[in-house]
Design a protein around this nucleic acid. Structure first.
Lengths: 353, 353
DNA sequence: CTGAAAGCGCTTACAG
DNA sequence: CTGAAAGCGCTTACAG
């Protein structure tokens, strides 16, 4: 590898001068500047970031800890982080907790183990002197317990931390459900059912409120019998929709499912029973998982702002580093956007008019 | 940050001695060793990897360039890389070309632009003195042109390079198609159609050979009218299946689709026409994309060894670094595995017996 | 406008 | 068994 010293010797200057032209600092005469630049080009010199980092005490790299990269939210977020990092010349040190393989879906039970791997990964990142850390969860939940204290800019995304030294960037669950419900209402639906996820989670609560607000704001009646609680899986969407459509006296004209998987199950139940979507019943999901576009019919759903979350996380870190984070919230929520496909239409009574 | 010097002072020894106990090198008396270890613990000392890297001229980090992290193959491969890296205490510097957003699907047209971003990213990695580089493609194709010469251990995965200084790790397209076809044959199918992807690609060719070999080896007739060429998309699977089922005189009892998306289209066409899967016709895909499990019925398909590819890529890099790569192939192919779900059964004539 | 020198935090021959 | 010293490749006050 050619070093700054090689350049200096060849150009008959000191390494200081070479460093000056490399960084555009100092005052170097145009003549020697040109000469040095030429030699740099000739020798295909590439600055050694490691040496530079050591001297400058900053690495221009951000550590990214992802709880599980195989979960659907991770790639979009990482993509957003990369995009912003590239713009600013930052590098990404990626570390993957692989939580699903390690502890399964049950984080709370194995919190101790989670904390242990997280600590180890954070230490590794700290040893590498990253300038800041972004922690990407697999699920919106409190993670301060498993993170602990970190003496660097730290932002959580797709999860949140109540530790006020951490920043949290999330999407807006309530708004997502609110907009989804409102979208149905805008088509003239009045009898809208909800297939909820497990009610022990923060997203389920927030999505529930969004649904509820939309009904209330539109003076629509709230039917407790139209609220069904599933477990986020395809099957539960299927079963609950059957209940909704077969055993109730009154049948809804539209369903908001709290995620796409359950919406997929709902679609399947409708097909089996002989309800056409969207002619006989409308269905909307939340998440915009990849599979939702291949459902029959393609599912209308609320897209999560994954890339934006990554983008904003990176931006937040940079702002902290530049000490201009005053205008930023410690707890940010990004809007979800409606993705219109083919599973929503006006209810048949409206069309009949 | 506490440094080795702080430890040395507090322990009344030289930094050399501290370094010895940190690395288990040198000969340090048990007594001072214990004392130093204690102080390290007390002060929560963490070695500065960047200083260490500078001195040792190796960073224990591997650069990973992924052509596009939002493509379905990337997370699995990265997961495999991480897993192996963790075992060996290596870190991952991740860089994302974001090729889809940059140049769309048409790499060949924009080869110049691809080369440019790739070069820039490789230089960045080189500047950071990674010990080796893994390049993760979005599609199995030759990439040596866009990579150029790199003076470090370099392995391509999910793509290949004819440059003999690069290693390539891929999955076995031919075996995947062969096994898929054989699986159908094992159920008694004799009239098997193929929905091919665009024939200008290496995977399409290899999958075609696999299909063909399976037929031949089982002495099954080859019907040219049973071969349809699509474009890898859902829609083409749908249309081609309609052609196959509606316009042919002879109708196949099974279809192998060269990817899951086209298989999904095939499923939809069958449903429309009134062919039950798998009772009236069997369908198998390739890729095991996430959506395939949510198809109705869930699609039987060939799983790509993504994690294994990541794993093996990392292993290969390490072996090159340790100079024991003699037993490794420059061009490795990993086996795909059958994933049995619900879209394949015996043909009705066989069942009838 | 340019250079000598110190120092970032480590490791490692070498000497004792 | 232990330490003094050089050096990895940079940057930057400071002096001239």
């Amino acid at each position: 590898m050619v070093t700054i010293k090689d350049i200096a010797i060849k150009a008959n200057v000191s390494t200081a001068t070479v460093s000056y032209v490399l960084n555009g600092t100092g005052t170097v005469s145009e003549k020697t500047r040109k000469r040095i630049l030429q030699i740099i080009e000739d020798l295909d010199y590439k600055p050694n970031q490691v040496a530079k980092s050591l001297k400058l005490r900053k690495t221009k790299t951000i550590g990214v800890i992802v709880e599980d990269i195989t979960v659907f939210n991770a790639p979009g977020i990482i993509d957003g982080i990369n995009e912003y990092a590239e713009k600013l010349g930052f590098s990404i040190l990626l570390t993957n907790l692989r939580l699903f393989k390690r502890v399964g879906n049950n984080f709370s039970v194995n919190i101790e183990q989670c904390r242990e791997v997280a600590k180890q990964k954070i230490d590794e990142l700290l040893s590498n002197h990253v300038d800041g850390i972004i922690y990407v969860g697999v699920h919106p939940r409190e993670v301060s317990e498993i993170i602990g204290e970190v003496n660097k800019p730290f932002v959580c995304t797709y999860c949140y931390s109540t530790d006020n030294t951490h920043y949290s960037i999330n999407y807006d669950d309530e708004q997502a459900a609110y907009d989804a419900t409102n979208y149905l209402i805008s088509f003239g639906h009045k009898k809208i059912a909800l297939i909820s996820g497990l009610i022990d989670s923060q997203p389920a609560h927030a999505r529930y409120s969004g649904f509820y607000s939309a009904l209330k704001q539109n003076n629509l009646p709230f039917h407790p019998s139209f609220i069904k609680t599933g477990d986020w899986e395809f099957k539960s969407g299927y079963q609950l929709t059957k209940e909704l459509l077969e055993t109730s006296e009154e049948v809804p004209t539209a369903i908001v499912a709290m995620n796409d998987l359950m919406a997929g199950g709902a679609l399947e139940a409708c097909r089996e029973i002989g309800f056409k979507v969207p002619e006989d019943i409308s269905i909307i999901g939340i998440d915009n998982q990849e599979c939702s576009q291949y459902f029959i019919p393609p599912l209308s759903t609320m897209g999560l702002p994954l890339r934006e979350m990554g983008h904003h996380s990176m931006e937040t870190i940079i702002n902290i580093l530049d000490k201009k984070d005053s205008d930023h919230n410690v707890m940010d929520k990004l809007k979800c956007h409606l993705i219109e496909r083919k599973s929503v239409a006006a209810p048949s009574n409206v069309k009949a008019k």
